[in-house]
Design a protein around this nucleic acid. Structure first.
Lengths: 167, 167
DNA sequence: TTTCATGCAAAATGTTTGCACACGA
DNA sequence: TCGTGTGCAAACATTTTGCATGAAA
């Protein structure tokens, strides 16, 4: 049985590096070494990440490929502006995820293990637009995060409890 | 014509002050002057607010009714814990809203004027639960924020443009 | 060769904490 | 009285900024 909420993918003609290059050019900004390094690193994995995690993964000061903290923050903002990344506020943490070559989606957030599960729902968009039009509100986007406990964490909680229950 | 998405209200037998008093007592915590001052202030208006705005509205140091910054933060957390307030992360800002005597609802967020419009949708909850059950995810709550431009801001943008359009 | 971007350090922001004293139960 | 709550200041975590230097176009 096919999962109704599963994610597909989106056709893109350019890689992130080229896409960002185009964006920079169109704005008269420079395609610099630090920017290329960051795009490289960011689009080599698919996980959600925050600024600090990214910085930790980069070479440290005085090493080949080092990028300063300030530049990381500045570049992340540009990547969001360029539509390559999506930024979201998750209970205190600010996390980023790929938004280029990826379909629009929403999240289930497990508050036990902090995992993010993605899903798609066309109905959600229909609902959103109905509410908005009802209020004469012009929609530019949305954020829908369902919080709770993922399957694995529910299981592991049950495992912990079982011995006690049997006593 | 009745608005399908409008908010009703919820019957509550106790006022916020009494309700928080009960909560404190049930936990062996003390019903102190600063706590009463904060509950009073917070539940005298209905706007969404952040910690800083609240602090500004309070009497300043050496004045009658002053409450320290630390106590404000500590008490806000207690009020959330007690179910009197809801806390949400809105593009960097952390805002609070009343959650006692108020129905569950979601928001349209105008990114021009920062206004929050509340709405209710039972279908959203049905959709949420369907997605979650599909992933064997145990839901504890959700956050749905639709961003865009509110009716007034759309109008004022049009007003600004009209003279130009006519030339 | 002229901007624009970077690295650095300092500053700003928002929130939390340790501790001595004050106060509610 | 006893233990919790408060105010204060310092610590903290995260992000932003000013400025001199360095590197794209």
């Amino acid at each position: 049985m096919l999962n109704h909420y599963a994610l597909g993918s989106v056709e893109v003609s350019l890689g992130p590096q080229e896409r960002f290059g185009e964006y920079l050019q169109s704005r008269g900004m420079r395609n610099t070494e630090p920017r290329r390094i960051l795009v490289d690193r960011i689009f080599s994995h698919h996980e959600h990440f925050d600024a600090d995690t990214l910085i930790e993964q980069l070479p440290s000061k005085n090493e080949q490929g080092y990028v300063s903290r300030a530049t990381v923050y500045r570049t992340l903002d540009e990547l969001v502006e360029a539509g390559l990344l999506r930024k979201m506020d998750l209970k205190g943490r600010t996390v980023f995820e790929h938004d280029y070559g990826y379909p629009q989606h929403d999240h289930l957030h497990c508050t036990k293990c902090d995992r993010l599960i993605e899903f798609q729902s066309a109905e959600l968009r229909v609902l959103r637009d109905a509410v908005a039009s009802d209020q004469h509100f012009r929609v530019s986007g949305h954020r829908f995060i369902v919080s709770g406990t993922c399957e694995e964490c529910v299981k592991s909680i049950r495992r912990q409890r079982r011995p006690v229950d049997l006593i």
